[in-house]
Write a protein that binds this DNA or RNA. Structure first.
Lengths: 218, 218
DNA sequence: TAGATTGTTAATCGATTAACAATC
DNA sequence: TAGATTGTTAATCGATTAACAATC
């Protein structure tokens, strides 16, 4: 089954639904959920919930709702989260190191989190050979081989802005097709590569727009 | 001047335009830029660039384009980036500490970055009193006073998921109106509070959707 | 069966793009 | 003046919401 042409707006909501279902499964409140309830918890209208899910199949029962466990497992499959993926991180600065710890803990604690940080890469010889959260740092020269050997399709970029584009191209050339980019740079890459930007500066600057005018100190 | 009702889609692009102009100013390529060129560099259509800017005034000259320096300064004003803002960060785990270093370095290196990390907060007594990148960690009990005293309107949340909602409410009650939230939780807050979610798990799960089917090892 | 809720179609809303007169 | 590019209006596109027949 291939569902081409699902809009990104839809795909972005699927992990949100999944999270609601995970919470529900953990708390064991009810084995069933209506689009109404699911929408409320996800912050989305009920009609939109039904429409989003309907793109992928008929998961509910009229008059009843959706089975939490069933829908959960379907969503995991749709999101490819039913199998493990090796992920690498490039750029082991303080942010990179923090994310490595974060991802690793998550992987160990939550068995449904199937994204495995398999290796870290850095250009600095002083960092190569060290480990963070048990994950070794490799030199950039080994990037290509590592990606191919471990079938890495997903990568996190935490290198400085001026190295980001070059790093991304290397990753893509080696076979990576999904990138979570923390560098404040718009990456220019082939169409088939998916990029998620975690551009904190942009977010902070956007927030600043909404700040109220300076209150003069009384 | 108050421009109510500007859509968030528009506001999100302003910092992108600003970044392009900053780069241009630094490289000194040209004192003028057309909506065409600006759009290309920002990854946006030229008509949209003109429409976005037109919400706030007439910044260009027909037949000529936009003056880089002038438009830059206007955008900074619109985004409230022409004055300094005190920001606090709550939750000094490894991610929080990394972000603190990141923000502080940025503040020191780039004089046009006017967001100043004024304090860190943590519930753990062992962390209180320490400093990160020169910024002291305060106990949660001092949160309220600190926010009022330093006129803090913006905060970064890096506490664990189960503490995020509570933390956010405290911040808002003390006067914070813009939050960058790293906890994997949908915060429920009054309308007037702006929240930017940096939910890495959601981003990674979304990226997983686009991964190609597992290639069987040859 | 009666009540509830899905899946889906039609209506609405909002954002982007195309086009062009105004004008530098 | 001739050429270029803005600011803006109208057309298009896409996403969300409303409504309801189908059906559990």
């Amino acid at each position: 089954m291939r569902w081409n042409k699902i809009s990104d707006a839809v795909v972005r909501r699927l992990p949100i639904y999944l999270r609601v279902l995970d919470d529900l499964a953990k708390s064991g409140e009810s084995p069933l959920i209506s689009s109404q309830e699911l929408g409320e918890r996800a912050g989305v209208g009920s009609a939109l919930v039904r429409k989003d899910l309907a793109w992928f199949g008929e998961f509910g029962k009229q008059g009843v709702g959706y089975e939490v466990e069933y829908l959960r497992s379907e969503l995991r499959q749709i999101l490819n989260l039913d199998r493990e993926h090796n992920v690498i991180l490039v750029g082991v600065g303080s942010l990179g190191a923090a994310l490595a710890r974060y991802a690793m803990r998550r992987y160990q604690v939550d068995e449904s989190f199937r994204l495995k940080l398999a290796g870290l890469f850095d250009q600095d010889p002083d960092k190569v050979g060290r480990t963070y959260a048990g994950i070794p740092v490799y030199p950039m020269a080994e990037l290509n081989d590592f990606i191919r050997k471990h079938n890495v399709r997903m990568a996190i970029i935490t290198v400085p802005a001026d190295a980001a584009q070059e790093t991304a191209v290397q990753l893509v050339n080696s076979g990576v097709s999904a990138i979570l980019n923390f560098a404040p740079v718009k990456l220019i890459l082939p169409e088939h590569v998916q990029v998620a930007n975690a551009d904190l500066t942009l977010e902070l600057q956007r927030l600043a727009y909404y700040l109220p005018p300076e209150k003069t100190r009384e």
